[in-house]
Design a binder for these strands. Structure first.
Lengths: 238, 238
DNA sequence: TTGACGCTTCGTTCGGCAACGAAGCGTCGC
DNA sequence: GCGACGCTTCGTTGCCGAACGAAGCGTCAA
């Protein structure tokens, strides 16, 4: 059972709360320093160092030295995909136990990045809007952009004919852990997120994976995607 | 960080070797008894019982009582997807350490089921053949069936027009842990595996996830998919 | 050069959990 | 009804690994 032993090894790496916190913090695709990760995992630097060493040795993380800092990031999209998968399962379990939603969670629930694409109410709302308008078709296992969708994305500056041409199915659903509904991942999801950042519709908040929706974002995305987005604009007491 | 705590919890469940063995054994989608799982995980029944209780409580496994037996299976395809994801990451790590391939591994490497679709050299060869002939197009994140593919699948009794109509992108790649190349998963992958079993091309072997390729399977699949399948028919000393 | 800083290594402590033997409970076959 | 069987619960043992204090190493800034 060569497969299973490795399965346990990798899963055990993610199975430690401190390491899981670090990995989750890196899910937005950025690179963070060892100190930052220590802080986010709420452990001392020397403990964090040991954890980060393990994660690097097992090639879950890639490390880049820069002066006296060491920047860590997920070693590959594969790792992000794995974490998504675990989170999707964890999300099913979570609602069964009533846990008081923290203040920080509120921001995360509204909008955040998930590796390279949008998640939270905003991410789900965008996926809903695109689906409702027939621009994309999402199934459990994948998704497709329709002809009307190709045109739509062109208008917001995402050209599906060039870079995306070869991989005709480049959009896929990703189960949102807070909303427990799919949002848009894959190359298309990443392109949408990139555009949203570039156009100033959303912006990163300090020290968190949550993103803020700007005034111009509210207006622009509201007119682009329609009423489905309203739920993403509310501060959201659920 | 509501997400991360759950992340660690679920991952820790998979992170124990005994539990990982059990989950891996259940990856083929069948339901197994507690005793069988205890044997596969190489632990005593009472140890297995404790593990299975945890896995059930966390809704990773679903359990069905049947007389004095208790049958366990993966609680949802989501769990299978999660395990796939972890295995894909584990596969990158594995080759770095030379591990002597066991006899059992040889059969698993040739052909096996991965939750509901084909894996091993056979699975990868089928994916290669379909890609080479332009029947499907696989990208990193998903896949599409071409028009020629739709016709092809019709000839082997898989009608993409009926049940599959709504989910236009129902095929996706799944990284093979032994071959380290993608094979075909998703609804299409499952349909191909089902057809292969029904037509008697492959058959389950006792007490393992490996599947055997029958004589008729060799002949039929060889003519259907062409030379790409040869590698899957060899007993394979790599 | 000196001190501050970021990170690592070493050694120790401590808690949690996997594992099993023994025993108990329900189910089946005869 | 009886024993055999499948599975669970209980109590104990033992080990692995997470955590931190202290100390060491390289890097930067003045």
């Amino acid at each position: 059972m060569i497969a299973a032993s490795n399965l346990a090894e990798i899963a055990a790496l993610v199975g430690d709360p401190a390491r899981a916190n670090m990995l989750a913090a890196l899910m937005d695709g950025r690179a963070l320093t060892a100190s930052e990760l220590a802080f986010m995992a709420r452990v001392t630097p020397q403990t964090a160092s040991a954890h980060l060493a393990k994660l690097s040795e097992s090639h879950l993380l890639a490390v880049a030295k820069q002066g006296r800092h060491r920047y860590f990031k997920l070693a590959s999209p594969l790792v992000g995909r794995m974490l998504e998968g675990i989170m999707a399962v964890a999300a099913i379990d979570a609602p069964l136990r009533h846990r008081p939603p923290s203040v920080k969670d509120a921001a995360l629930r509204q909008a955040r990045t998930c590796y390279d694409h949008l998640a939270g109410r905003l991410g789900v709302a965008v996926a809903d809007a695109l689906t409702a308008r027939g621009h994309v078709v999402l199934s459990e296992d994948g998704g497709t952009v329709t002809e009307s969708g190709t045109g739509f994305f062109q208008t917001i500056g995402i050209d599906l004919q060039t870079g995306f041409k070869r991989q005709r199915c480049f959009c896929r659903p990703c189960l949102d852990w807070s909303e427990r509904r799919p949002h848009l991942a894959g190359a298309l999801g990443a392109a949408i997120a990139t555009t949203a950042f570039e156009q100033g519709w959303i912006e990163r908040l300090r020290d968190t994976r949550a993103v803020g929706i700007t005034a111009v974002g509210r207006e622009r995305m509201g007119s682009l995607f329609g009423p489905e987005l309203d739920v993403a604009f509310s501060s959201g007491e659920n």
